[in-house]
């Protein structure tokens, strides 16, 4: 499979702040990639660079085989709506829908109409007066109706109600079925969107913590909980991503293969373990403190 997007050791600094530090990953054509990580981990920065709206301080990004920055033929293939997209003050929905096709050669009116109806976006209200969720709805209309080979969705869910989120998923997959495309989607609503992704990239403090096929990424990750001593015996000196301790009980998230002997010993020690969900894994990578963190809240009560 060819790669639609290739990110090669991209570093982006703003003054002294290193927003991205030698980030590398690739997105195969027609993949749906989940770009995950905490606030400030670099998700929007890398998206802007892929979209050609920003340039890396060093390193290189190839989108459909070209550097997107100031390369019009490549930019025409990309749809990117920022999570804080601004519109001219007096704009209403129809103004946006009228100019959108100028920027999107594959624009599809039917998709746009079905979505604006489904999202119940008010047609007559000036856009600046719309709610957060309604603004997100417009961003999704622009993102999906563009039918761009490269569709970048930055936090598409902000403020969206549950019905609208389900509609978005359904429309995304339905329209993808008709017109496959490469999709990069960043979000914090991991549990809800995890099943959409065939690939994931987890960013942590500007670096890539995890990158690959979702099934592979989760294959060796698990959560274990039991008494402090039992868990400590099972883990021995192997690396742990996150550890939570309350009194004598500990739960950990880790990513290394468990052999059968360890599993049998775990059962004897009454330690439970289960495969980690994508959400568990992202939360674990985001917790910089892997040492024992005693929760004090309970004691205060």
């Amino acid at each position: 499979m060819t790669n639609a997007i290739e990110v090669h050791s991209v570093t982006r600094t703003y003054g002294r702040v290193r927003a991205l530090d030698t980030v590398s990953f690739a997105v195969p054509e027609h993949s749906i990639l989940g770009l995950l990580g905490r606030n400030g981990s670099g998700k929007t920065t890398i998206m802007s660079i892929i979209a050609g709206q920003d340039r890396p301080s060093s390193g290189q990004v190839d989108v459909l085989g070209h550097t997107p920055f100031e390369h019009a033929p490549t930019l025409a293939q990309i749809s990117y709506v920022r999570d804080n997209q601004r519109y001219p003050d007096d704009y209403r929905l129809h103004h946006v829908l009228r100019i959108a096709p100028d920027f999107a050669p594959n624009w599809n009116c039917d998709v746009a109409e079905e979505l604006t109806d489904g999202f119940r976006i008010p047609a007559k209200t000036p856009i600046k007066k719309l709610s957060r969720g309604q603004l997100s709805s417009i961003a999704i209309v622009l993102g999906l109706a563009s039918r761009a080979p490269i569709t970048l969705l930055d936090e598409p869910y902000l403020g969206l109600d549950v019905t609208a989120r389900a509609l978005f998923h359904r429309m995304l997959l339905h329209d993808y079925g008709q017109h496959p495309r490469t999709i990069v989607l960043s979000t914090h609503l991991i549990e809800e969107s995890a099943s959409l992704f065939d690939r994931v990239v987890i960013l942590e403090q500007g670096g890539v913590a995890m990158n690959g096929d979702q099934d592979d990424v989760l294959a060796s990750a698990w959560v274990m909980s039991g008494t402090k001593d039992a868990v400590a015996e099972l883990v021995a000196d192997r690396p742990v991503l996150q550890r939570n301790t309350v009194g004598g009980l500990t739960s950990i998230t880790a990513d290394f293969a468990l052999d059968d002997a360890t599993r049998i010993r775990a059962r004897d020690l009454r330690v439970q373990f289960a495969p980690a969900s994508l959400q568990d894994l992202v939360a674990a990578y985001g917790s910089s403190d892997t040492d024992s963190t005693d929760v004090k809240v309970a004691e205060r009560a």
């Binding site: 749906i32 359904r170 496959p180 099934d215």
Partner: peptide, 17 residues
């Protein structure tokens, strides 16, 4: 596979797999 993808809200690549 596309019907499975839309119905179960999973990536079409996963459904194909």
């Amino acid at each position: 596979t596309n019907e499975y993808a839309v119905f179960y809200q999973i990536s079409p690549i996963t459904a194909t797999k």
